[in-house]
Simulated scan of single mutants.
Amino acid sequence: MKKDLLNIGVAVIAVALTASAVTMMFLAGSVRLEVDRLAAANSDATQWSLAQTEVDVLALQIALADAVAQGDASALADVRRKFDILYSRVMTATNARQFAELRLEQGAEEALETLRGFLERRVSDFDGPDPALRSVLPEIQDDVEGLREVARSYSLLGVGFFAPSRTKDAKRSLCCWRASAC
């Protein structure tokens, strides 16, 4: 009787340990898939942010054209808002850790320097009174026209830089999924 209870106890412990091991393997696989999913989302957000740099330059260019044509206070407010968005985007690309390796790529720092140079030269115009801003809008339009290609090349450089790691992440996730499915 005592031996039977001991055997039953050992069997219960063995079943419990096996169930725990299987559960831990399942949870580890789930955690790995979730980490890979979050990494992919971060990569997607990074690439989106890079592409937005070009979009923000174009949005500023359109707002400038509207402000020159209309000349009213709401058009100037829109120009200021577009400038602030571009300023924020470029400063993020300049300072964010997620872009540190990209900034080391040939052409990236030069593109950012060109964008920052424009922003630093023009920030006092955008922060000044309406009449002062209105008087320099044509000059700013000329400056922004030159930024389009810089922003585009920076965006494409970044997408090209981050896309290969995204492909590797997808392949690694597929391999992990196959391994856990077997």
Score class of each variant (00 low, 15 high):
G128N: 05
S153C: 00
L112I: 08
Q61K: 10
F126W: 06
D56K: 05
G117D: 05
V79L: 12
A151D: 10
D125Q: 06
G107W: 03
F126Y: 14
E54Y: 06
D84F: 11
S74H: 12
D66A: 09
D130A: 14
A111Y: 00
T92G: 08
D142R: 03
L76A: 04
Q98K: 13
G128V: 07
G128K: 01
P164I: 14
Q98T: 13
S49I: 05
E149G: 06
T92W: 14
D72K: 04
E109N: 12
R116C: 03
L137N: 06
A77Y: 12
S135R: 04
R134W: 05
Y154E: 01
R122I: 05
A132M: 06
E139R: 06
L157E: 06
G107P: 09
L50F: 09
A63T: 07
E101A: 13
R97V: 03
L50C: 04
Q61F: 07
L115N: 04
R89E: 14
Q141N: 10
P131R: 00
T94Q: 15
E110H: 11
A132F: 07
G117C: 04
E109Y: 03
A77D: 15
G160V: 05
A96S: 14
S88M: 12
E139T: 11
E101D: 15
G117N: 11
Q141P: 02
L137G: 09
P129G: 07
T92I: 14
G158N: 06
V90D: 08
G128Y: 01
W48T: 14
Q141H: 10
A100P: 00
D66T: 12
